[in-house]
Design a protein around this nucleic acid. Sequence first.
RNA 1: UGAGCAGUCCAUACGGCAGCGGGAUCGUUCAGGUCACGAGGAAAGUCCGGGCAUCACAGAGCAGGGUAGCUGCUAACGGCAGCCGAGGGCGACCUUAGGGCAAGUGCAACAGAGAUAUACUGCCUCCGCUUGCGGGGGUGAUGGUGGAAAGGCGGGGUAAGAGCCCACCAGAGUGCGGGAGACCGUACUGCUAUGUAAACCCUACCCGAUGCAACGUCUAUUGGUGUCAGGUAUCUUAACGUCUGCUCGGCGGAUAUCUGGCAAUGACGGCUUGAGCCUUCCGGCGACGGAAGGAGUAGAUAAAUUGCCGUACACGACAGAACCCGGCUUAUCGGUCUGGUCACAUU
RNA 2: GGACAGAUGGCUGAGCUGGUCUAAGGCGCACGACUGGAACUCGUGUGUACGUUAAUAGCGUACCGAGGGUUCGAAUCCCUCUCUGUCCG
Length: 126
Amino acid sequence: MLSGYGIIMLYTEILNDNKDFLALYRNGRYIASEYSVIYVRPNGRPYNRLGITAGKKIGNAVHRNRAKRLIRLAYRQAELSLPIGIDLVIVARSRLTEISSSEYCAYMDSKGVPEIERCARKMMKK
RNA sequence: UGAGCAGUCCAUACGGCAGCGGGAUCGUUCAGGUCACGAGGAAAGUCCGGGCAUCACAGAGCAGGGUAGCUGCUAACGGCAGCCGAGGGCGACCUUAGGGCAAGUGCAACAGAGAUAUACUGCCUCCGCUUGCGGGGGUGAUGGUGGAAAGGCGGGGUAAGAGCCCACCAGAGUGCGGGAGACCGUACUGCUAUGUAAACCCUACCCGAUGCAACGUCUAUUGGUGUCAGGUAUCUUAACGUCUGCUCGGCGGAUAUCUGGCAAUGACGGCUUGAGCCUUCCGGCGACGGAAGGAGUAGAUAAAUUGCCGUACACGACAGAACCCGGCUUAUCGGUCUGGUCACAUU
RNA sequence: GGACAGAUGGCUGAGCUGGUCUAAGGCGCACGACUGGAACUCGUGUGUACGUUAAUAGCGUACCGAGGGUUCGAAUCCCUCUCUGUCCG
């Protein structure tokens, strides 16, 4: 239903309200690595919501754009294997600009997705 | 051949697969297919100048801000071009906030006798006597200090000295000649005037304020808030509000309360063809102007150009549009071409 | 995106109508006094780098975010950058 929106394909909307970001930072679970920090929280909706943060620390506008692209790419590839009905915020870290996209996709496949699933399941039970 | 100077242009290229943004079109009302297009020379810093929009417009003055050789170019500029002066370089050429302290005021620490006017050490002379001291006068050459000591240097002159006089140089004024002008050249006069205006200031010229989160249209909720209109009560012709900060002046009577409308939220518009770019010709030393012809859809809104693979080489820097232009400044791996200069060699 | 502020020792914070006499003052730190021992209080000292030196002493030079300029002289005035922070109907 939201495919016309572009960036994200199937079940995902863009998260763009500052309140939602703050709520996730406070109440969500997080998975940290040297490339990124992923915040997860169930939202009780029939679709997912994704937010990306690329702060000033990462570098100039070119580097920030690259970080966002990499995260979007990785999310798109991992989307089908994710549970539906969660909010995600991915915060980029400065190491992310130094690696290639395949490296980050591999990380998401092997570690990111299972961790997100685990966190989501735990919080759903509550 | 080497060194160096000034400027122009380019910003890895090509192919394959997957993907993104708005648009057109097919299809159908919702998936999707097809097509072409899709970041920069600085998109940056926000340092200037405009366009555009809203507010205010009877204006006038002061304050405040900016610019600073001249002539031009331009929509405009603190930009650019040419020229002048000063400084640097053998040279091509480069640098230059470059009006006025000779209108007034201020400041100039320390040092030094003395800092914008003086007399410590001196030099000369007169008087007195205890004969190397005291007093009067002349002088600003000498000594040291300082960023700066009353134009500089040499000669004449003198008791000693001094633009007191003379030559040359620097500066000022006046006349004449040249130039569009900044200025340049020259003659005479006069006898000289410290630095600082990126100190106040003076002179000339320019400047209304706010910025696309401007602003316009539609729309949900109306409790408070703001604002506009009307009613009621109170106070009065001076206050208050507003017009840029102030003054004059103009406009609105003001405050409280009640009723009604509007605003916010969200969406859409503003949003991209523009003082635009390229080529040729004409005018101009040039910036630039004119004419003819040609090419050409970035317009997002947590924000689009990417990921992977292959080939080639110089192994790829700085860096991402957010209303739009003209500059300036700063960052930048390198490459390309053009025009001068100097040195050496050969002819 | 736009409009504005600021940057001074380890920390805080004056100096910003240029002057050479020290970059005030407070906190902190070190040492000493007070005490049986501490705290409080009082006193003295205390930035960094380089050079000199046997030397941790003393002396000299430089440094007020960075780099230029004006000036005899700059923390102060002017210009260009860097960084930090604030505001937006």
